[in-house]
Nucleic acid binder design. Structure first.
Lengths: 345, 345
DNA sequence: GTGAAAGCGCTAACAA
DNA sequence: TTGTTAGCGCTTTCAC
């Protein structure tokens, strides 16, 4: 059951006017007399008239909704991004419709299709860790749907993008570990489909090089599912620590993975930072209260969300097709705490 | 700019049929010949025809969108709830439109108004910590908008509700602290406008009584802003520890407040659990990795979201007005860890 | 300054 | 079995 809203027709009938007059009066058209205008507007206010946004959408072919696809809402990094998105969208009168891929490619395809079929005005997406094929997005992009990528982007699609400086984030973290005396720094990364992962590994490599540390491929591990389950991370860590020369430090390149690494170290009773140092990408709350306080690479998530939606609105509201695209790269912040600063020399 | 979607009209024209025939063929109406049907459907598939949901909404007076209002998305408890909501909504073909009140009453009113004006089919809301007036919701409720309350409810509005057993959650936590030998158990709560808070305080009181511990009003502190800022919690804790007989344990009754309490104890270098024990409501990740591992009252957040949306869909999809309302109460779980189990006897 | 009518995409009652 | 028409709520051209 649903209540019946007041329509322009109701007002017109009650006031003995035509719907067009009412419409114009409400939109403050200059061709309506002051008297009629105030009559209509007062009456509308009394009845708490609200224009039906669906009717408007049908007319304007604009839904004032934007779709957002992330892997998980319940991941601090992404919820902070959504927070940033929502903060702007709300002010500009746009709805935010959220979907989660749960790191599944097929679910992402469904999400995107579903959103597209709901006539969104634009799409904000951070692809799933499994995504290495982008036909589903390419298709929509070619049809003219405004899309902005954030965090996990598809380089092949020409549109606005916003990421952090993954290379530097990883570089700084690794350099820091090296400076603290760690020599066997392992890299626990997400899926290597992601540009993120590749850039972070590049930064890590460069830092090893600049620290005159050898690059050992055995120390790089990928979590194809992005560390969704603890077991995935556990497995690669088991491999790492079973190495003849096990790592003395971990650099983890994603929120989820970082948490699982901490959990692992605790369960295995490995002393942090004496036996194993750790630095990870993380936007979790309370990392400073962990045991030991965790050194993190923090991303400006809220800011990223803000920028992404602003870029999208620019695309949506631009009169002429946008041909010049921007890729904004935000800085990360290395916050040094105890987890990485106590190697036994 | 926006791409032009294929419409029924396009198909009708191309095939030399009327729009109604096409419409009926697509909806698999029995009154259409098999031949026409397959003709239309194949052609539609080729063109990747998608019914325009806005047109459908206008016709059916149903938007297939539901509004959700929470205080903060970037709060684990709420993001887990949203996760639960989304999981069901998606399957049933409903959009989830999210708004945040940021714990502000006036913002909540705006959010609710905005959502209502966007012709949502129903509303899921957990009120802000400042909300002690419910006219904005009452109005919509009277107009027939289906509403379901979760977590922070308004008792005065007759509709479905889902909460946890706040009384028992608080009772168990307090009993546990008492059993561990803590004698001056302070209660750091949210706003006393919230039924949550009142129930948790009642549980706390009963537990004190059952543990033969005196009830001391000085030990109860409210955070009217729900502990949104650290400073708010800091202030009440300063008061508590400045007492002639300061507390030897804290029971915190909200996620945000719990985190701030931990932060405070760390900053003041109070030894947990020896000098001060602590138990808090929390759905944060990694509480077991804190220093010390935190004893928590955990809420079934995902479940709560699932149930809330199911109740709402029942309301929305019910043919006749629903008169019998349900208030589901879910159990909490006390997870005992080191933060509450080490009092110096 | 105001009204009539068409149209956005779709469905459904009514005709044929 | 298929087509015609009206209508959901709104805006906007075209008349008056």
């Amino acid at each position: 059951m649903k209540y019946e809203a007041v329509t322009i027709k109701d007002i017109a009938k009650a006031l003995g006017l035509s719907t067009s007059t009412v419409s114009r009066a409400l939109r403050d058209s200059h061709e309506i007399s002051a008297k009629t205008k105030s009559l209509v507007r007062n009456y509308a206010k009394d009845l708490n008239y609200r224009p039906n946004p669906i009717a408007l959408s049908l007319k304007e072919k604009r839904s004032h909704s934007i779709g957002v696809v992330v892997c998980e809402i319940a991941n601090s990094f992404f919820s902070q991004i959504i927070n940033g998105i929502e903060s702007i969208a709300y002010d500009k009168g746009y709805n935010v419709i959220i979907s989660q891929s749960h790191e599944s490619y097929s679910r992402e395809v469904l999400d995107v299709d579903y959103l597209a079929s709901r006539s969104i005005d634009g799409l904000l997406i951070s692809v799933s860790t499994e995504t290495n094929n982008f036909g589903h997005l390419q298709k929509l992009h070619e049809q003219g749907l405004p899309i902005v990528f954030f965090d996990r982007i598809i380089n092949e699609i020409q549109t606005h993008k916003v990421t952090v400086d993954n290379f530097s984030g990883a570089y700084d973290a690794t350099r820091h570990l090296a400076a603290e005396g760690y020599r066997r720094i392992a890299n626990v990364s997400g899926s290597d489909y992601l540009t993120n992962t590749r850039e972070r590994i590049a930064g890590y490599r460069e830092a090893l090089h600049d620290s005159r540390l050898p690059y050992d491929e055995q120390l790089i591990k990928y979590c194809i599912h992005g560390g969704k389950q603890y077991e995935e991370v556990e497995e690669v860590l088991d491999q790492l620590f079973a190495l003849p020369e096990p790592p003395d430090a971990l650099f983890s390149s994603a929120d989820k993975i970082t948490s699982h690494c901490m959990r692992y170290l605790k369960m295995k009773e490995l002393k942090v930072p004496e036996e194993v140092g750790i630095v990870g990408f993380s936007n979790q709350a309370m990392t400073e209260l962990l045991n030991p306080p965790l050194t993190i690479v923090k991303q400006p998530a809220f800011e990223m969300g803000r920028i992404a939606i602003e870029m999208l609105l620019q695309l949506i509201e631009s009169k002429k097709p946008v041909k010049q695209f921007e890729h904004k790269v935000l800085p990360t912040e290395l916050i040094i705490r105890d987890s990485s600063t106590g190697k036994i020399k």
